[in-house]
Amino acid sequence: MYDFAPDPSLAKPERYRQLVAAADALTAGEPDSVANMANVAALLWEFLPDLNWAGFYRMVEGELVLGPFVGRPACIRIPLGKGVCGTAASQGETQLVKDVHAFPGHIACDAASQSELVVPVLRAGTVTAVIDLDSPLTARFDHDDAAGIEALARLLADRI
């Protein structure tokens, strides 16, 4: 049994270092991508405060399709270039959105979401998935969060 209980007083860089180490421990040697995404979604929920959604969208035949997550039910399919997730996937770049209502074309799967961080997972330069974090707080995410989730995406590139 795994018990990953982060110390809430940790500075963000250390919290993310521990999150990546926990994800490494859970996914190392496991070939099933769905199982790995499910465990990492649960870790994100445990490690990161002030979230209302944490999970994955997978690239399937040219569009994003809902993967394992923690939170309220979500949009199942997102076209490339649409919303924060579709923009991250089409550009292959992290999207750090302090106010989702100011993001052109934002897709509101959960009306409680106020800010969002989406990081593409790249394998050999190709987007295979995105990690999506939503918060009910405006400006919840910053560059430390982006750097931490980007490190997680690099770890997962060959595991999901």
Rank of each mutant, 00 (worst) to 15 (best):
G67I: 01
E61M: 02
L155M: 08
P13Q: 11
P68Y: 04
A38G: 11
V100T: 12
G62C: 13
V65D: 03
S115H: 00
L152H: 02
T126L: 10
D145F: 10
P120D: 08
L152S: 07
R15T: 10
I76W: 09
G81M: 09
I76C: 01
P120M: 13
P31H: 12
R159S: 07
S33W: 14
G62M: 13
L10K: 13
A22W: 04
G62R: 11
A35R: 12
F4C: 01
V130C: 03
N39G: 15
P120Q: 11
L26P: 09
P8W: 14
L156I: 06
T87S: 03
T126G: 08
A22R: 02
Y16C: 02
P31E: 11
R58I: 10
I160L: 15
K12G: 05
Q95K: 03
T128V: 15
I107G: 07
A41S: 14
A146Q: 14
G62N: 15
K82D: 12
P8C: 11
A139Y: 03
D142A: 03
L44K: 00
T138R: 14
P68H: 06
H143F: 06
V130Y: 05
V100Q: 01
L48T: 08
V127Q: 07
V100A: 07
D32L: 13
D99M: 02
A139V: 01
T27A: 04
R17E: 05
S90V: 14
D24K: 14
Y16K: 02
V119E: 04
P136G: 03
C109S: 08
F141A: 04
G81V: 13
G86A: 11
A74F: 04
L19I: 02
K98G: 05
E93D: 05
A108E: 12
G92P: 04
L117S: 10
A35H: 13
L48M: 09
P31K: 13
A21Y: 06
R77C: 05
E150Q: 15
I107R: 05
A89E: 09
V70D: 02
T138K: 10
Y2P: 08
N52P: 01
G92W: 04
T87V: 06
S113H: 01
A38W: 04
I107E: 06
K98E: 06
V34Q: 15
A102E: 15
A23P: 04
G86F: 02
R154C: 08
Q91G: 06
N39P: 02
Q18K: 12
G62T: 07
A146L: 05
Y16L: 01
L117P: 07
A21P: 03
D142C: 02
N52V: 00
Y2F: 09
Y2M: 13
H106P: 00
T126D: 14
D24I: 03
A11M: 13
E63L: 10
G81L: 09
T27Q: 10
I131N: 06
V34R: 15
E14G: 05
S90D: 10
D99W: 00
A38D: 15
